[in-house]
Write a protein that binds this DNA or RNA. Structure first.
Length: 519
RNA sequence: GGUCCGUUCAUCUAAGGGUUAGGAUUCAAGAUUUUCAUUCUUGCCAUAGGGGUUCGAAUCCCCUACGGACUACCA
């Protein structure tokens, strides 16, 4: 065992992971899950979670995307230890601000013979690509083609110096070695092997003076002392390049461990989950709503759609990970305690909007009532309803289990805030027979005599009253409900009466008797 | 096309050679709730196919099929 391995295992090197999104738009739930798994892994091991913005492609930069990413992580309860906003010992955490760092490392690779300058323009390469395609072949910039192309391997040193001297644009490419088997253990998938003969000479440093992802991520992960790279499966094909880069830099001893997360797939059909799926099937694919700065299109978000943060996280955590037990409701603390990479699956998970709704319903029943009130008050305000917290708290307590989303609290309990505007016709047809108005009127008079206006007492008194009258309970209760709420829904009748108060309850019965035309 | 990864109920998944293949969601039926919801009970439904290895395979190996990712001076 090498000393470094010894050190790694026994000295309990501090675990450091990073979430490294590109600010090209809103974070997709796949990205949120990647962030979550990184975060859970870091916290489980008492390590650090960093946010690094990979904005090396200026052409794809989208204003507001970076802020969106941070706000989304904030909403999710994923706290960042080091990042562009938080700062930290390895600042800056935005790659565009680290531009100068990469040039030297690229040069180091050229000097050591692991990379070379290439002067072919993007247009020239496009021509070669389409020509190859026309012949049914694929053009690859690699060990067989590079000698026929324009680069510091095919040119003399003087020619290169001249081109660089006169300001020709160039890129720096990795010189992929011949006949090498690159083998690496992925913590989720086990051993993966690649033959370098199948790989190409990837661009490491672009002609605009920016590094590509490949160079920047390896350099930064090294500099930032990242111990574990946990990223999406789409990166697996570039793993051999990254491993080779660590070796070329002489950083093999501190190379991080790699784990590639399975993809999140469409609910139906083929392929990975996309924004279109959400639009078509009516569920958000983004944590927060997003307005495209160019088109002005607005995409819905979990937060705005009334999903609860903890339920959203719980649902995401189970997409690809499982605890090995039958528990499925987890707080963030429980997720942290239970999360291990060993229990992350290898196969892609189809996203299930139905299960997501189920989770939300579960959390509607579990979330602290105060929190629900906090979310619901603005919705009331938007409807122009001014009311006090105490009433809202009571209402939330009574209707929460009937709701899947926060906004449904209104559908299930609007009658606590305003008298019903109309009466459900189906229920009227079913319950409002000719003799009902008179019975309701009697009930109103009975209510007027009740002294202790409190659900349990009221129920008892009301029951004896109805029994004494010899009325049918089912008819009475349902008709009474119709008077109070306008339909056939809502919590216990006597609970409703209790909150509405004696006068209002009576008033609603009287109004109903006036307004409802017997079927 | 090439490289790599994957494949257990419709969906999320458990079972790392020996279980009637377990749980959850959805759906259906019933009980409770004099509405609805909750809760509870029950039911339907799976090891992609074919070969091995083994006393014994969802589990290990091979082939096929299917799915996916990647194949840019994007990440």
């Amino acid at each position: 065992m090498s000393f470094s391995a010894f050190k790694y295992i026994y000295m309990e090197k501090r675990i450091r992971v990073r979430f490294a999104p590109s600010p090209t738009g809103p974070l997709h739930i796949g990205g949120v899950r990647t962030a979550l798994f990184n975060y859970l892994f870091a916290r489980h091991h008492g390590g650090d979670f960093l946010l690094r913005i990979e904005d090396t492609d200026q052409t794809r930069y989208v204003p507001g995307a970076e802020e969106y990413i941070m706000e989304a992580l904030d909403w999710c309860g994923i706290t960042i230890d080091e990042g562009p906003r938080e700062g930290g010992p390895h600042a800056p955490y935005r790659q565009s601000e680290r531009k100068e760092i990469y040039a030297a490392y690229a040069q180091q690779l050229v000097d050591s013979g692991h990379a070379y300058f290439a002067f072919d323009t993007a247009d020239e390469l496009d021509v070669l690509r389409s020509a190859a395609e026309a012949k049914g072949e694929t053009f690859t910039y690699n060990n067989v083609s590079r000698n026929q192309l324009i680069n510091s391997l095919s040119l003399t040193a003087a020619e290169c110096a001249e081109r660089i001297g006169r300001g020709d644009h160039y890129v720096i490419r990795f010189k992929m070695p011949d006949h090498v088997m690159v083998e690496k253990t992925d913590l989720i998938r086990g051993n993966v092997r690649f033959n370098t003969d199948q790989l190409d000479d990837k661009v490491l440093y672009k002609s605009d003076g920016m590094p590509t992802y490949h160079l920047a991520n390896v350099v930064d992960d090294h500099l930032m002392e990242i111990t574990h790279v946990i990223r999406g499966e789409e990166w697996l094909p570039s793993l051999p390049l990254h491993v080779l880069l660590y070796k070329a830099f002489g950083w093999e001893d501190t190379m991080p461990e790699f784990s590639h997360l399975p993809l999140i797939l469409k609910p139906a059909g083929k392929g990975k989950l996309s924004k279109r799926d959400g639009d078509q099937l009516g569920f958000p694919v983004f944590p927060l709503a997003w307005k495209d700065p160019v088109t002005g299109d607005v995409s819905r978000g979990y937060r705005e759609d009334g999903y609860l943060r903890d339920g959203f996280i719980n649902m995401l955590s189970l997409l690809g990970w499982n605890p090995g037990t039958e528990q499925e409701i987890f707080s963030m603390q429980e997720l942290i305690a239970g999360f291990t990479l060993e229990r992350v699956g290898k196969s892609g998970s189809r996203f299930d909007p139905e299960k997501t709704r189920w989770f939300n319903h579960q959390y509607m029943m579990r979330t602290a009532a105060d929190e629900l009130v906090e979310m619901f008050m603005p919705l009331l305000a938007a409807r122009g309803i001014a009311t006090d917290r105490d009433l809202v708290l009571k209402v939330v307590g009574m209707v929460r289990e009937r709701c899947t989303f926060v906004q449904e609290i209104w559908d299930q309990g609007f009658f606590f805030f305003e008298a019903p505007q109309g009466y459900d016709e189906k229920i009227v047809a079913k319950r409002w027979k000719d003799d009902v108005p008179e019975m309701m009127a009697e009930i109103a008079r009975f209510f007027g005599q009740v002294v202790i206006w409190e659900p349990v007492a009221l129920k008892n008194e009301f029951s004896s009253f109805v029994n004494q009258k010899g009325w049918n309970f089912g008819t009475i209760m349902n008709s009474l409900r119709l008077c109070l709420v306008g339909g056939s829904f809502g919590p216990d009748i006597f609970e409703i009466c209790g909150v509405l108060g004696k006068e209002e309850s009576i008033r609603r019965i009287e109004v109903a008797v006036q307004k409802i035309i017997p079927a």
